Computed example of a mutant assay.
Amino acid sequence: MNAALRLSEIHDRIAHAVTLARREPAEVTLVAVSKTHPAEAIAPLLEAGQRVFGENRVQEAAAKWPALRERWPDAQLHLVGQLQSNKAEDAARLFDCIHSLDRPSLLTALARAFDRVGRRVPCFMQVDAGEEPQKGGCAVKDLPALLSEARAADVPVIGLMCVPPSGIEPAPFFALLDKLARDHGLDGRSMGMSGDFETAIMLGATHVRVGTALFGTRD
């Protein structure tokens, strides 16, 4: 199946989930996760109209996206993987959104980076909803303090993000993230991947991060 057909199929599945959830299609942004895939695999999706992409690593994105953005200057790039504090300035220059703000040290680094580059990149705060420290994410109990610090540092937090534990029904974790976002007055919920994005949409996702269903299985 070519890129345009895969993209159309994902849009159809999103539209169906949105209808079931009695939501509007414009409420859900498809983030095409292009990590590990070369520019020649990304270009067909851009040609088919996809404009929002997700990358896991700053260096990988920096290597392949400048040339793609010359051809498609309206493409948006989201960082969906863990971010090291020493890469904060590079991320601030390259990305249009950061989904993995999860600790005070990174918050401090991003605030300084945003001041240096003269732009404030919208962020999702990653929550460790499944209590899996190896995945990164702020503990639920630490979320109010980190949000307060972000507001004080003028770091724009537009929502929350989570990666549920693998092999477990994801719905309870999506429901938890939705509740936390509501409790803290945040509109964004970055949740749901290739295998569970329809469930995430039913439970309030505003950004779904789809890689395998669009690009095929990674090597």
Rank of each mutant, 00 (worst) to 15 (best):
R93M: 15
P104C: 05
M161F: 12
A4G: 03
V127Q: 09
A3E: 05
S190L: 04
R151F: 14
R116G: 15
C123S: 01
S194T: 15
S105D: 14
C123H: 00
E132L: 05
V163G: 04
Q82D: 11
F197C: 07
F173T: 04
G118V: 13
V155H: 10
A4T: 09
A150W: 12
A150M: 15
P44R: 01
R103S: 07
L106S: 12
P104N: 08
R120D: 04
F124N: 00
L106H: 10
L5K: 14
K87R: 14
V140K: 14
H184N: 08
F95H: 08
G192T: 14
T29I: 10
G192W: 10
W65K: 00
I14Y: 02
S34H: 04
V208F: 06
A129T: 03
P144T: 01
G185T: 10
V117C: 11
I158Q: 13
W65M: 00
R6G: 03
C138N: 10
D115W: 09
H11N: 12
A92T: 08
L203T: 07
L101C: 07
L94F: 08
R69F: 12
T199D: 09
V127M: 08
A63E: 15
D115S: 11
M191A: 13
N2P: 11
R6H: 10
F174C: 03
G211Q: 14
G118C: 13
P144E: 00
P66N: 12
V18K: 12
R209E: 04
E55S: 07
A181S: 07
F215P: 13
H11W: 09
R116M: 14
A63G: 08
D178I: 02
R182M: 08
K135V: 03
T206F: 02
R23V: 02
L94K: 03
K64G: 02
A39L: 02
A3D: 00
I98M: 05
D154H: 14
C97T: 02
V121P: 03
H16E: 10
T29P: 12
R51D: 00
D154Q: 14
A129L: 00
I10P: 01
G204F: 01
Q134C: 11
A129N: 01
D196W: 13
E198P: 07
R93L: 15
S8Q: 14
K87V: 12
T217H: 09
T19Y: 06
G216C: 12
R69Y: 09
D96I: 07
P25M: 08
L30G: 00
A61V: 09
I98C: 07
L94N: 06
E40V: 12
A15S: 13
E132D: 06
L214S: 00
A21Y: 11
T29G: 08
G49W: 00
D102S: 09
P73R: 00
D128L: 02
M1P: 15
V58Y: 05
P122I: 10
A88R: 08
Q134S: 15
R71G: 06
A32H: 01
L214Y: 02
N56W: 13
